[in-house]
Write a protein that binds this DNA or RNA. Structure first.
Lengths: 200, 200
DNA sequence: ACCGTAACACTAACCGTTAGTTTAAATAAA
DNA sequence: TTTATTTAAACTAACGGTTAGTGTTACGGT
C-alpha cells in the first residue's frame, strides 16, 4: 500500500498514459477522428493495443482526456460557492467559465472535431448525463425547503443542457444567460405548491 | 414510378422487416440484449446478416422499432392541439401519455431491458436529442412573442428530459407534473426581459 | 536478495458493421 | 410471351473497436 504514490512505477504509468493521449489527439486532429484507428495510435505511441485500453475505456475517451474535471467543477461550484451567492448564480458562473474554456483558441479544434463526429457527440451526451446525476447528488445537501429527487435531477439536466446548447449558439455567453433566466424561474417554481414527498 | 406501392415486393419486404424485428426482440428478452449477437438474430430469422442491416441501421435500432413515432407525436401535440389549450399544457398531456404508454404491461419488459443496458441507454439518449431538435423546430411556428432559437431548443430539451426523468421516478405521473411546473415557469420567464436576437 | 505484483507485450479472437458481388424474383417494356 | 430492368436479399470477406488469455519484465516492499 503506497502511502506516497511517488514511485518510479506511477511516474512511468502516468507518462505512458500521457503519451497515448497526446499521440491520439495529435493524430485525430491531423488526419481526422474516423481516419485514425486504435492500431495507428498504439503504433505511433509505441505501445500495444491492449495498453491503450488499459488506460482508456474506449476510443472516444481518448478525446475527452483533458476535460475530465467537468463533473467535479460542477459539484464544487455548488458546494464551495461564496456564502452570499445563490445556487443558480453559482452554476451560471461556472457554466459561463466552462463554455469560455472550450471555446478558447487552443481547445477549439478539438471541439470542432467533436461536433462533426456522430460517435463523439453521442459519447459526450452520455457523459453529460453522468455529470448531471453527480450534480443532482450535490444538490441534495442544499439548504432551503426540501426538494424532491425529481426536481433536483431536472435542474441538473437543465444545467448541462445549458452548456450543450450554448456551445452551439451564435452568441454562447448570451445563450447561457438566456437559458439560466429560465432555469432560475424553474428553480423557484419548484418551491411553490409542491407536496413534499411522502416518505422522508 | 409506382404511384400505388401496393405490390408484392413491398409486402414481402415489410414482412421480412417485421420478422427480423420480432425475432430480435424475442431473443433479446429471452437471453438478454448483450447475450444475443446479430448473427444469432439473422440465423433465427432465417435471413443474412447483411439483410438485417439493410432494414435497421444498428443493433440498438432493433429495440426501438415500435417507438418510432415518438418524434412525430411530440411535434403534433404542439401543432394539432385544441385552440384553447396552451403550448405547455399540450406537451404535458403528451408526455403523460408517452410515459403511461411505455409503462404499460406489454412494453415494460422491453423498457427494463433498455434501462439495464448501457449501450441502449446511450442510444436512447442520442435519439431523444434528435427528437428535441425536431420539437424545437415545431416550436418555431408558435404564435406569441418571438422567441430565440436558443430558448426554443432549451424548452424542447427540458421536455424530453421530463420524459426520461419521469420514467425513472417512483411516481412517474407525479414527476411529469413536478417537472412541467418548472417548464411552465421557464417558458414564461423566457418572455420577460429578453432582447430579441439582433438579426431577424 | 527475494518475491509478489503491477505494467505492458503479443496473439487471437469476438462482435458490430460495411463493401463487393451475385442470385433470383417481381415488375415493366417489347 | 418474351425480354429487360429493377430490387430484395444472399454470400463472402473484410475492417475496426474491444477483450481474453498468456507471458515477460521491472519495480517495490520485505
Amino acid at each position: 500500500m503506497p502511502e506516497q504514490p511517488s514511485g518510479r512505477r506511477e511516474r512511468k504509468k502516468a507518462a505512458t498514459r500521457q503519451k497515448i493521449a497526446d499521440t491520439a489527439l495529435r493524430l485525430f486532429l491531423e488526419r481526422g477522428y474516423d481516419a485514425v484507428g486504435i492500431r495507428d495510435v498504439a503504433a505511433e505511441a509505441d505501445v500495444a493495443v491492449t495498453t491503450v485500453f488499459a488506460h482508456f475505456a474506449s476510443k472516444e475517451a481518448l478525446v475527452f482526456e483533458r476535460d475530465a474535471d467537468f463533473e467535479q467543477r460542477l459539484a464544487r461550484a455548488v458546494t464551495d460557492r461564496a456564502p452570499g451567492e445563490s445556487l443558480v448564480a453559482a452554476l451560471r458562473r461556472e457554466i459561463h467559465a466552462l463554455v469560455r474554456h472550450c471555446l478558447a483558441d487552443d481547445a477549439a479544434p478539438a471541439w470542432h472535431m467533436i461536433d462533426t463526429s456522430p460517435a463523439l457527440r453521442e459519447y459526450e451526451g452520455a457523459m453529460r448525463l453522468r455529470h448531471a446525476e453527480a450534480l443532482a447528488t450535490a444538490l441534495a445537501d442544499e439548504p432551503g425547503p426540501p426538494r424532491s429527487d425529481t426536481v433536483r435531477r431536472a435542474i441538473a439536466r437543465f444545467v448541462v443542457d445549458a452548456f450543450a446548447l450554448a456551445r452551439d449558439a451564435d452568441d454562447p455567453q448570451a445563450a447561457v444567460d438566456d437559458i439560466f433566466r429560465m432555469i432560475e424561474a424553474a428553480w423557484e417554481a419548484a418551491d411553490t405548491g409542491v407536496r413534499v414527498p411522502l416518505s422522508g
